[in-house]
Design a protein around this nucleic acid. Structure first.
Length: 504
RNA sequence: GCCGCGUUGGUCAAGGGGUUAAGACGCCUCCCUUUCACGGAGGAAUCACGGGUUCGAAUCCCGUACGUGGUACCA
């Protein structure tokens, strides 16, 4: 059997959303599981929708996810070029369109978009298909006499090439996820294959490029299923069904209310794109998982599990484990609703199981953006690991650890006041004096010292711990108090106690 | 409208003729901790509906409903 080759074929029109990344991921996992190649092909046949920077953005996202293409416009390869606009320049698509015309599987159509628009208005369910192609004044090489057709072409009349869908046949295909799927040809329309500007449409381009690039398995979103019969026909006419890749139409990822849109992100407060995307056309910024504080390991893990599972109870997978265990027949056929709570759980788990290396840079950047300069990296990492259990998203490190670097601005006095007594106040006042005398400022010393004085004052140490915490942290959270005191140092600890005493 | 695809707790899901219908997220209770988490123990909550087939259906078949996609010289 020939080497497995799969492709991800995005069009550079904007951000890469969850569904797109999952499609890439399944492509990639499938290929790597089979020791095959993963190819990225840019489908930029619609020049009106081209967005500057979108292509680079897609590669940036893949890189962040840890998905490295074997072939692409950026990575090179033996089946280039990998941009359809460049392939069009080489006349690749035209020749196949011509072949189809010659063999009677396609025809010229001279109707302008405006004319078709008019017809659609008149006939509600109009389709350019076998029922209408020689009626309603449609002008094409099936309805017009031969000499008029050649006349129009000679005069340079713009035309498109449409596929000639045969009558009364059943077109079926085997989908790796859904099994046999079939369509009646009477309801399939004669899709445009080559546009008036000479560019192929997706329909012609996928088939031709998948053939030329020797793609063995084609994964795409479920939204392509209705046009699959057109592709099957094209394969049959052009290259033979025995050469056709195996298809897999992936289920959709849904949002809280129906299909997932980038609007859902703003509406429900979760990212839908892999990375921040700034659309130069609309000046709109759409938030990404990366910037929201997700670890790439968690991101691909949660996406992989949205529609696939190993059949075991394992939910946390490294990329390597996913590659090893991925199998297409464990992919669901039904759409999955994206659950942000579960997504956060995945990230939380990954933060807990990863070392500080995987998030320290991003965490550091957040501290510095908030005006905190990190001078001691080793200490910074120690602090990060101290609070990691409490962090779901990377920015949480800031809120969970800021008090290590800065005196809290406000103290949650309400947490202390109800049980605050004159005795406790005296305790802390005297403790300051004792602290001044401590030579080796260490966890055990501090804790012993604290308990000693508490016992002497006949107060339970536990009753003093919460006030002490509020003094140092400002609120009811964080690692053990003495760990904090040890970390921030003598001077700062005393300063915070004094400061708090004035407020309680 | 027509066509395609889908439907197991709120969400992700295992199970594919006989199970007390796994597990995870979230929610609730308790334990641990005189903080918050982590960790641990419990709890509430599900086979869309209606017909078949069968001794027996969440599982097979047919309808219906609902969801979702397509119906462009967009991908």
């Amino acid at each position: 059997m020939s080497k497995v080759r799969v492709r991800f074929a995005p069009s550079p029109t904007g951000g890469l959303h969850l569904g797109g990344v999952r499609t890439v991921l399944y492509n990639y996992l499938f290929a790597k599981n089979k020791g095959g190649d993963f190819i990225v092909r840019i489908e930029d046949t619609d020049q009106t929708r081209f967005v500057d920077g979108a292509e680079q953005y897609i590669f940036d996202c893949l890189k962040w996810c840890g998905i490295e293409p074997d072939e692409s416009p950026l990575h090179g390869g033996n089946y280039g070029p990998y941009r359809q606009s460049e392939r069009k320049e080489q006349g690749i698509y035209q020749q196949y369109a011509d072949q189809l015309i010659k063999e009677g599987h396609a025809y010229y159509a001279f109707d302008t978009p405006e004319e078709l628009e008019q017809i659609r208005k008149k006939i509600p369910n109009f389709q350019y298909n076998q029922h209408y192609r020689v009626a309603f004044g449609l002008r094409n090489s099936l309805s017009l006499p031969e000499n008029e057709v050649s006349n129009l072409i000679e005069k340079g009349t713009p035309y498109v090439i449409r596929i000639n869908i045969p009558k009364d046949i059943i077109i079926s295909l085997k989908d790796m996820i859904r099994g046999e799927v079939s369509f009646d040809s009477w309801q399939i329309d004669d899709k445009v294959l080559l546009k008036a500007d000479g560019m192929p449409t997706y329909h012609l381009a996928v088939v031709v490029d998948d053939y030329l690039m020797k793609i063995t398995h084609a994964f795409r979103g479920e939204e392509w299923l209705p046009s699959a019969p057109v592709h099957v026909l094209l394969w049959k006419y052009l290259f033979g069904l025995d050469k056709m890749p195996e298809w897999a139409h992936l289920p959709l990822i849904l949002g809280p209310s129906g299909k997932l849109s980038k609007r859902d992100g703003a509406k429900y407060g979760f990212p839908v794109f892999a990375m921040n995307w700034f659309d130069p056309k609309t000046n709109e910024l759409t938030e990404g998982f990366k910037e929201k504080g997700f670890l790439p390991e968690a991101f691909i893990n949660l996406l992989a599990l949205l529609g696939w599972n190993a059949g075991t109870e394992q939910e946390l997978f490294t990329k390597e484990e996913l590659i090893e265990q991925f199998s297409i027949d464990r992919v669901h056929s039904g759409g999955a609703k994206f659950d942000y709570e579960k997504a956060k759980w995945f990230n939380h788990e990954w933060i807990k199981k990863s070392g500080t290396d995987s998030y320290k840079l991003q965490a550091k950047a957040i501290f510095e953006a908030n005006g905190i300069t990190i001078t001691d990296d080793a200490k910074f990492e120690t602090i990060l690991s101290l609070v990691a259990d409490r962090c779901t998203l990377i920015p949480d490190f800031y809120t969970q650890a800021i008090f290590f670097f800065k005196t809290p601005e406000t103290l949650d006095a309400d947490a202390v006041k109800p049980k605050w007594t004159e005795e406790k106040k005296i305790f802390f006042t005297e403790w300051i004096d004792k602290l001044q005398l401590i030579g080796n400022w260490e966890l055990v010393t501090l804790e012993d010292n604290f308990k000693e004085l508490a016992t002497a004052k006949n107060i339970k140490p536990g009753e003093l711990q919460l006030p002490f915490r509020i003094m140092l942290v400002g609120g009811k959270f964080g690692p053990p108090v003495f760990v904090i005191a040890a970390a921030i140092g003598k001077e700062e600890t005393i300063k915070r106690i004094k400061n708090a005493l004035q407020q309680f």
